[in-house]
Amino acid sequence: MRGSDEERLDALFRAFRDCPTPEPSVNFMPTLWARIESRQRFSFSFRRMAGAFVTAALALSVALGIYLAIPQSNQAYYSQTYIEATANSNLNTADIVGPVLSDLSDPGR
């Protein structure tokens, strides 16, 4: 049974092999070239777009670099040190930490 199935399957494959191959139509080559050209156009415009994008990114980077390199005229300079600035800002505030008392005789205080 198995053997006969094998033979019949081989016969089916042989019959399939003998089925006529479709002939290429007269438009085969023109359509192929049209598809090639269409793909070329697409990849060309994509490449051009990518090129334009890279150029724009480069120009932007250069402009940003120049902008950062030029010293800004309205930049605020601090002449004080950090300690001095902190001390000045705390001039008018009450001391949070009071003086330490060294008298330990009265534990109630």
């Binding site: 399939f16 092999r17 089925c19 191959t21 479709p22 002939e23 290429p24 139509s25 085969f28 080559m29 359509t31 192929l32 598809r35 090639i36 793909r39």
Partner: peptide, 30 residues
């Protein structure tokens, strides 16, 4: 021109849909 018949044959037997064979063959050459 030399290989299209062979390519069409292989595709025809692989996909078993005659109406799409030429389209797939063109994709191969593309």
């Amino acid at each position: 021109l030399a290989y299209r018949k062979r390519v069409l044959g292989t595709i025809a037997r692989s996909i078993a849909r005659p109406e799409d064979v030429e389209d797939v063959a063109q994709e191969v050459f593309l």
